[in-house]
Design a protein around this nucleic acid. Structure first.
Lengths: 253, 253
DNA sequence: TTAAAATTGATTATTTTTGATCAAAAGTAA
DNA sequence: TTACTTTTGATCAAAAATAATCAATTTTAA
């Protein structure tokens, strides 16, 4: 295994667990502690991780800590959905990410991709990805929604209209065979519409609890969606209804 | 467990419970009291917690102090300049804030104002003000400059052009009677120019070390500036030169 | 192919960290 | 105040981790 490979593995390992000792890394990669130390020294010099006595820690951005994402319900399923969705991102892609909590969980997996560009209105996503060298970030401007830690408003819509992405990954309040895509606020629905309109492919991330439920603002049809990613708890009759409408439903396992 | 990890644990523990004794921490982390004392000493020196007899307490204003932690040379002067500048902001103002470090320090003082709107390209400023109910925030969109934790690029310029502010508060790389305003990157200078162009009043925050110094990109004249805020270390001959050019130079004390 | 360069793991001297001890300082109660 | 207890910071020896060195191996270039 060469240095580049080890570097990548070390970075993802440290990213996942927060901190690791030289010996843990040595075991994990099957390399001698001496080599791991040399690697850590070099990687730390690049500023990609924090060298500690005995190991290394991931660098956290003290300035942007106010954007840490809140933990909600259904975390395990959401995590699986996010991982599945991230597999649909290829190196070099330009992608839209909205401010949904499941979409946020894609970040961790995106760090492995190379040369992708992320265009987002989510402040937690920005905070999470700002220190990843392989990802370039474009932040959508406009009014700040303090509760949702996101940007919205007409300026944001205008901003999105100025870009075209290969893929859009969006969360959604409700989706059903009868009413298509629904939201419970104008702000959200207009942002989501803009993402859909300006992306070649549209992927919806949605845990099974929201499928078949409708919110009160209808804003899009199923035909605009390329794939729906959801979890194995999805009712089979609901799935059938969606598939019959021509939607590609992918279950995360 | 190494110092960095302990530091993290100590800080979150103290944050949660408000205050903890050396022995409580010693138990919690499984380290000797001697080590905990050393840690508390070091962490307190960084200004991240308050050392008490027998333990430690949390500090009430954590975000700001973490910035103070990486304090540079002229910090005291910058703090005074920021405080002075903040006095020029009135309730109800719409203001531009750029991503200068001195401008950032205005945040603390702005929290006392009512009903102001802040339009900024600085991520730290946004992070600092996002939880202040009396301030509404507009984030400038565009490419993220990861090092400077700011937004820039042509989209950002366009965004600024869509707004008009009562006042603009800007930091600057160099200012002199001979060459006016100078910067050392195109990105910065174009953003600053946009702020100047779209604000009724322009205030420059600049510690005395940068006055009389020129960077290589000239981008504005002194006549565009309403007031220059600086510190008492300003050379009197330099001050005279600027005043003769018609600039209002205000010294922070 | 061979020679040169780079990488790796082991060895070792050096540095860093840690916990114990103890005198001095700080806090507490009478 | 004084006597007593707690906490502290300094010092030191043991333990842990590191950087430097070197030989063996692998890779690269000729």
């Amino acid at each position: 295994m060469n240095f580049q490979e080890r570097k990548k593995k070390i970075l993802t390992a440290v990213e996942e667990s927060g901190s690791l000792s030289v010996f843990e890394l040595s075991d994990k990669l099957g390399m001698s502690p001496a080599t791991i130390r040399r690697d850590l020294h070099d990687i730390a010099e690049e500023g990609l991780l924090l060298r500690t006595h005995g190991g290394a820690m991931k660098i956290e951005n003290p300035v942007l800590t106010s954007f840490v994402a809140k933990a909600g319900s259904n975390e395990e399923n959401k995590e699986k959905i996010a991982q599945l969705a991230a597999e649909y991102v290829a190196d070099g892609d330009i992608i839209f990410l909205d401010c949904g909590s499941t979409v946020f969980k894609m970040c961790r997996h995106l760090k492995k991709r190379n040369g992708i560009k992320v265009i987002t209105n989510s402040l937690p996503i920005m905070a999470e990805l700002i220190d990843v060298p392989s990802i370039s970030l474009n932040l959508i401007g406009g009014e700040i929604d303090k509760q949702r830690k996101a940007v919205h408003g007409h300026k944001a819509i205008e901003h999105i209209g100025g870009y075209h992405a290969h893929k859009a990954f969006i969360g959604i309040d409700g989706i059903s065979a009868q009413n298509g895509l629904t939201a419970h606020s104008e702000h959200e629905s207009s942002i989501t519409s803009a993402f859909i309109k300006n992306a070649s492919q549209v992927f919806v991330l949605c845990d099974s609890s929201k499928i078949g439920k409708d919110s009160h603002i209808k804003f899009g049809s199923l035909s605009q969606v390329n794939s729906l990613f959801t979890d194995q708890d999805l009712d089979s009759s609901r799935k059938k209804q969606l598939v019959e409408k021509g939607l590609d439903v992918v279950i995360a396992k």
